[in-house]
Computed example of a mutant assay.
Amino acid sequence: MPETPRPVVFIHGLWLHATSWEPWVERFRAAGYEPVAPGWPNEPASVAEARANPDAVANIGIDEAAGHFAEIAKGLGEDTVLIGHSFGGLLAEKLLGEGIGAGAVAIDPAQIKGVLPLPLAQLRSGFPALGNPANLHRAVSLTAAQFRYGFGNAVDEAESDALYEQWTIPSPARPLFQAAAANFVMHSPAAVDTKREPRGPLLLISGTADHTVPDVVTRSTLKQYRDSMAVTELRQFEGRGHSLTIDHGWGDVADAVLEWLRAQGL
């Protein structure tokens, strides 16, 4: 660790508010880092405000979000570490591939261009947004049952419902449409430069019971980096679902990330 605390930018994915990273922020600050957890462009400051004003984030796409977080990371300096979950993981990969950040961790990252597996569980998880083409320019909310399937399937129903009430917000559907079409679009915003040399180390994390980003998708993402000489590793958490950053076992994941960052000198 450098004498000056290393900045860390936490990037959340769809349907969770930025404040869902608060326990991580506290743990990383206690470990000597200088963490921040900004919201997506136009995201209201609280869960309640976000639910009351869903149109604030409607039509935000991958490129708009990537540009937003790129400016934040650049403002914090070259030593910044990027940690993202779900679409936040895709954004962390994308920024690292653009030479932004000293290293990155992508937890259950949304599929990037080139990833081919499309399990039925993933299709079902994305259906609340993708099921209606008119949602492309809208913000979409999940029901408790939809959250239970996509996020909380590996915890009991009471915990899933509590997490839903505490952290969920309406999110733009556009990134899901962009990722779904990525392999059919030449200049897809879901494309990541997986061959960039040099770049900082990258850790991919997968929950083996994840429905939203199944383990096979994350393993396929790892294969996209096979031609890179930079450090790219995968850590799997057995029996964990998409809620692994916010449920009762979040600390195990956070500690594994801290351990990996120290091993990389970050």
Rank of each mutant, 00 (worst) to 15 (best):
S141A: 14
G89P: 02
P133H: 09
N132F: 12
G131M: 09
V115Y: 07
V115R: 07
I112G: 00
D156K: 01
S171C: 08
A121I: 00
G67E: 15
K74L: 13
T168N: 08
I72V: 13
S141C: 11
L95G: 03
G99P: 04
L130Q: 14
S125Q: 03
G67A: 12
P172D: 02
A154V: 10
A106I: 10
L136W: 12
A181Y: 13
G84A: 06
Q122E: 15
S188I: 01
E159Q: 15
A139Y: 01
A158V: 15
A162M: 15
R124Q: 12
V81G: 02
R148L: 04
E165H: 08
L116F: 14
L96T: 06
K113F: 06
A104H: 05
A180Q: 05
A173H: 01
V155F: 10
P109E: 00
W167Q: 00
L116N: 09
L120H: 13
G103Y: 02
A191D: 13
A121R: 14
Q111E: 11
Q166T: 12
L82H: 05
A144W: 04
G99Q: 03
F184K: 10
V155M: 06
S171Q: 04
K195N: 13
H137A: 10
P109D: 00
N183D: 15
Y149Q: 01
G67W: 14
E93V: 00
S188V: 10
T80E: 05
I72N: 01
G89R: 02
L142M: 11
I169G: 10
